[in-house]
Computed example of a mutant assay.
Amino acid sequence: MAKNLTESAHDRQNILNNRYALIKAEEHLQLGGVDFQNERVFTKQQVMALFEVGDATVERYITTYGDELKNNGYTLLKGSTLKDFKIRAHGTLTNEGTKTSILGIFTFRAVLNLGMLLTESEPARIMRSRLLDIVLDVIAERSGGHTKYINQRDENYLPSSFQEENYRKQFTSALSKYVEGNHWKYARFTNLIYQSIFQENATEYKKVLNLATKDKIRETLYSEVLTLIASFESGISHELEKQSIEKGRKLTQKEAENIFISFEQHPLFTPLILDARTKMASRDLCFREALHNKLETYIRSVPESDFERFLGDKSKSLEDQLSDPETLAVFKRLKDR
């Protein structure tokens, strides 16, 4: 999926929050800069030279995108900090003015941020293209090339999946005992849960993620979504049994459907549904390049913690997790409950 970094704030931030991509970018781009306080920083003059733009252009972007640039490392030096910087940068400050009392500097991250914003710079355009390639390579490398199941690299995935499977059995049992209809009702009411949580039925979801017919949806879901599905299944199972007993008969499918609607509208689930939709829409676009059109308004930039969660040193493939004694011990505890 083509990304226009000059227009999309969350696409820019997804790159800047991915420290693994930044490490690789710093290694490959070789932009120069000055070592200061354990990182590479750049003066405005150095940035102007890198992107072949004038002072007025850089100042215009600082004014227009000040908050974004500051959040990503642009800062003003003054006092003793500026004095220290001048000492360390001696010989490189050719046009900034040695007597200046305030000096703006860009961290490497802020330079990339500015490069993703500049529309009138050919070097910036080339840098954006290289950055996108680096990000794709890093995600593929660290995920083992299997972004379809990147959700499974989360250490919380297996316990959530195991827990949801238990509630799934409880849910299908309740449908069998307390709701009228043939075996098609299981798929129908499962779709109602999906639509309540992420506004897509099974067919729509598979199309977005380009899943094969044999692929199981739940194996691609994030742990938070699985936990919310389990909550729906547990609560709905309880209500189906309760209302069926009260009426002294099986519920009609319409009566059962009303229970689903009430769950979706219950204030208890509102923040949980919002969180699940935001995580699904944002992570899938970032890690899988999959756009959920019905969830587009929920897309946000993916936090740094998520890159650690799915790409970091603690993230593991499902095969590695299943061979981990600690993970197996968690499964045993869950099974014994």
Rank of each mutant, 00 (worst) to 15 (best):
W184M: 12
P123L: 04
E122K: 05
N156R: 14
Y157Q: 03
F162G: 00
F108I: 01
N182M: 04
R142M: 14
L103E: 09
R168M: 10
R188S: 07
V138S: 04
Y178P: 09
E180S: 12
L192Y: 10
F162K: 03
L118G: 00
L118T: 00
R130K: 15
G104T: 07
R188I: 07
I197L: 09
A110S: 15
L112R: 01
E141I: 05
L132N: 02
N156H: 12
I139P: 04
A110W: 01
S173M: 12
A110L: 03
S176L: 14
L132W: 00
G144E: 10
D133K: 13
S196E: 09
S173T: 13
R142V: 07
A140K: 13
S176E: 13
A174Q: 11
K99M: 07
G104P: 08
A140Y: 09
Y149Q: 08
G115Y: 00
T98F: 06
G181F: 10
N95V: 05
V111R: 02
L131A: 04
E180T: 14
T98Y: 08
R130N: 12
K99H: 08
I193N: 14
L114T: 00
R188P: 01
N156D: 14
T107A: 07
E96W: 03
E120Y: 01
T190Q: 11
S101V: 07
T94N: 06
S160I: 06
A174Y: 12
L103W: 08
L112C: 02
T172I: 12
G181C: 12
I134K: 03
L175H: 07
Y186V: 11
I105K: 06
G145C: 09
H183L: 09
F198T: 03
L114W: 01
E96G: 05
T119R: 03
P159H: 07
M116P: 00
L114F: 01
I105H: 07
P123H: 04
F171A: 11
Y157A: 04
R153C: 07
V135Y: 00
Q170V: 12
E165D: 13
Q195A: 09
L114E: 01
N182G: 15
R109N: 08
L118K: 00
K177P: 01
K169C: 05
R130A: 08
Q152C: 11
Q195I: 06
H146D: 15
E165L: 13
L112T: 01
K185F: 07
A174T: 08
M116R: 00
I193Y: 04
K148D: 13
S161V: 02
S176R: 11
L175E: 11
R142P: 06
N182P: 01
A110N: 04
N166H: 08
H183C: 03
L158M: 11
L103Q: 10
L192T: 05
S196M: 05
I193E: 12
T147P: 06
Y167T: 14
M116C: 01
I193K: 13
I150G: 11
H183G: 03
R188G: 00
S176A: 14
A124F: 02
K99Y: 10
R109V: 05
A124D: 03
R142S: 06
I126A: 03
A140W: 05
R153I: 10
T94A: 05
